[in-house]
């Protein structure tokens, strides 16, 4: 079953950056990594999938049209896009609770459990405005996870995290995917991160989707995802691969 289906998704900004004709499919249980350099259109693609930017083309999530069934889709979707949207006047707990209030059956225990999972429970009554970048990122992840969504979209989720934090986030993603069957769409400009986290990879370059493969297949032909990325980019440019 396809969880996300995009067809010719196009959004070009005034500076001619954005995305062009992105057709992408994410199947249930996938952890799909969007790999690409800064400015390649990863964030725009995610924003278009979440209706944060108005793009041309079609988006279907859980088989439903994004524009017609947005509420139903978002009841089953969690997301963290760019920098975490944290209200600095609220405590960590209040930030998560405010988001959780929009979903049925999210109890106080679940909010605390989510905060514990991202190691913020001991800071739950501290104002989020005083948090470090890494703590804000963890809080953003808690907000994305708290409703126990079936689909989670994470834009550069390990940004600002220390080594332990990166490993913990990777572990949370793995656990949610394996134990609860959660589907992930994750963007990163770090090939190594995608390689360790994702079972499928889509390469974005200069606003276009230039390659799509399972991580396993990509690694069968290349020593690492970094090499895979460089090879598909060279191929796209028409460079001679030596």
């Amino acid at each position: 079953m396809n969880v996300i289906e995009t067809n010719n998704l196009t959004k070009l900004y005034k500076n001619n950056r954005g995305i062009k004709n992105i057709s992408l499919t994410v199947e249930k249980g996938d952890v799909l990594g969007l790999l690409g350099p800064n400015g390649s259109g990863k964030t725009t693609a995610m924003k278009a999938i979440l209706n944060l930017v108005r793009a041309e083309g079609a988006v279907k999530i859980f088989g439903m049209n994004l524009h017609n069934d947005f509420e139903k889709i978002m009841l089953r979707t969690g997301a963290l896009i760019e920098s975490p949207a944290i209200y600095k006047d609220l405590t960590a707990y209040q930030n998560v609770k405010m988001h959780a209030a929009m979903y049925p059956d999210v109890t106080k225990e679940r909010i605390e459990h989510t905060l514990r999972a991202v190691h913020l429970l001991q800071y739950k009554d501290d104002k989020a405005g005083r948090f470090s970048l890494g703590m804000k990122q963890r809080l953003g992840l808690a907000i994305a996870f708290v409703s126990e969504p079936e689909l989670i979209i994470l834009d550069e989720p390990v940004n600002g995290l220390d080594i332990e934090g990166v490993v913990e986030v990777r572990e949370i993603i793995r656990r949610l995917n394996e134990e609860k069957g959660v589907t992930f769409l994750i963007s990163s400009h770090m090939a190594s991160e995608i390689e360790k986290t994702c079972n499928k990879v889509a390469v974005m370059y200069e606003s276009e989707l230039i390659a799509f493969s399972s991580t396993e297949d990509a690694l069968r032909l290349h020593p690492s995802l970094e090499d895979y990325f460089l090879a598909v980019v060279k191929d796209k440019r028409g460079d001679v691969v030596i």
């Binding site: 209706n51 944060l52 509420e71 978002m74 997301a79 896009i81 949207a85 988001h99 929009m102």
Partner: peptide
């Protein structure tokens, strides 16, 4: 940049 949090809730 917190407005998008409202837009990512299950609300039109």
């Amino acid at each position: 940049d917190t407005f998008k949090e409202s837009l990512m809730r299950p609300l039109t």
